[in-house]
Design a protein around this nucleic acid. Structure first.
Lengths: 193, 193
DNA sequence: CCTATTTCATAATCTAGCTTATTTTTTGTT
DNA sequence: AACAAAAAATAAGCTAGATTATGAAATAGG
């Protein structure tokens, strides 16, 4: 059952006894979204952090010129949210949208706090998760500055091998920080070698 | 006393009772570094996470072409480390260097775990800190893609008003992701208006 | 199965920011 | 105070990547 995927994922990072497992199972439930539905829209307050069972979710910011900038893709066994908005309860900077039919668990603040209270170990779990996410985010900052667009594309391919087939190219371009035309040019270049 | 600064800082994010406060106080101690000393060097394993009382610390990555890329500046009441290396115990991607004489608390893994065990609330504290840092890192990626170098410089000035006077320009340039020459040009442009 | 809408490829032109080089200013050391 | 070394300013020429434009190929919906 798909809720067990979540338990297994937690147990990669911390130990859980049976009591704790059943508390967690009792409090979470699966929810499904259709392709193109939004979990949050830029400007609204973000109410949820989600854990994804299946599907794919994209977070992106639309800037003043109307250009999209993809912050992250989240797939199976990963998290998504506009954390800044979720924490501060201020308007979201990002759109969080399903780009495939997606099945997930939705955690609102109340559920989050309830879980922390009943299973305090989860504080540790979320600390570890958050630290790991921070490390990736910092690495991305450095890569953005130190690598060419082509190198960043190659890194993207290694980091997310399946994703290239699953999401349209213009989204990948906006994740890499280049135009779709330029990404197309890079692919042409690579193919010609 | 400077250790109290640290307690005050923690208490901005979580509540502590007296027992917890004294445990924390008993386990931490101040350490001083000279200007230019390294807390970690790229390639070594990072042994510490530090909290800064006074001074300024820079984390930067030197890429294959020998160019420096500043990941972060950390000043009074902030953290520094190569988190990726600290967590995984693999070689550090970053140099972490004092750019002023710096007074700080040094947390190694053992101390960290000891603190988490004796004051479990600190798991929550570090989760919050990490989440906030993650939010900034994500915002920085988006800004890098959506703003011009000049806009990023103006944002930097607003975010860290004192820092411009405290650190050399070439470091600011490497934080913004531009060359020192180009930052100089931007400053000239702004001055001429 | 057909049409409309997205998505992708290719190419010419253009620009923000890089490189390289030289000069001036600031900082640190004896 | 004097010298050396690091940092900053300025400027000319150069490229990575943007913009604009056009056509071809996929997808999706009816």
């Amino acid at each position: 059952m798909s809720k067990d995927i979540f338990l297994a994922y937690i147990k990669k990072h911390i130990d859980l006894n049976e009591a704790e497992e059943s508390i967690i199972l009792s409090k979470i439930k699966e929810r499904k979204y259709l392709k193109n539905q939004f979990l949050v829209q830029q400007g609204d307050v973000c109410r949820y952090v989600v854990f994804i069972f299946t599907g794919c979710v994209r977070s992106y910011h639309v800037d003043d010129d109307g250009n999209e900038h993809t912050v992250s893709f989240s797939i199976e066994n990963w998290w998504s949210s506009d954390m800044g908005s979720f924490i501060t309860q201020k308007p979201a900077d990002y759109n969080v949208q399903c780009i495939e039919p997606t099945s997930l668990i939705q955690f609102d603040s109340a559920l989050m706090e309830e879980l922390f209270e009943t299973v305090p170990k989860l504080e540790r779990f979320f600390r570890i998760i958050s630290q790991n996410a921070l490390v990736s985010a910092q690495r991305r900052v450095v890569n953005t500055f130190s690598k060419t667009a082509r190198e960043r594309f190659e890194i993207f391919r290694e980091d997310y091998p399946e994703l290239e087939q699953r999401v349209p190219q213009y989204m990948i371009a906006s994740y890499l920080g280049v135009t779709k035309e330029f990404l197309s040019k890079i692919k042409g270049q690579i193919a010609r070698e």
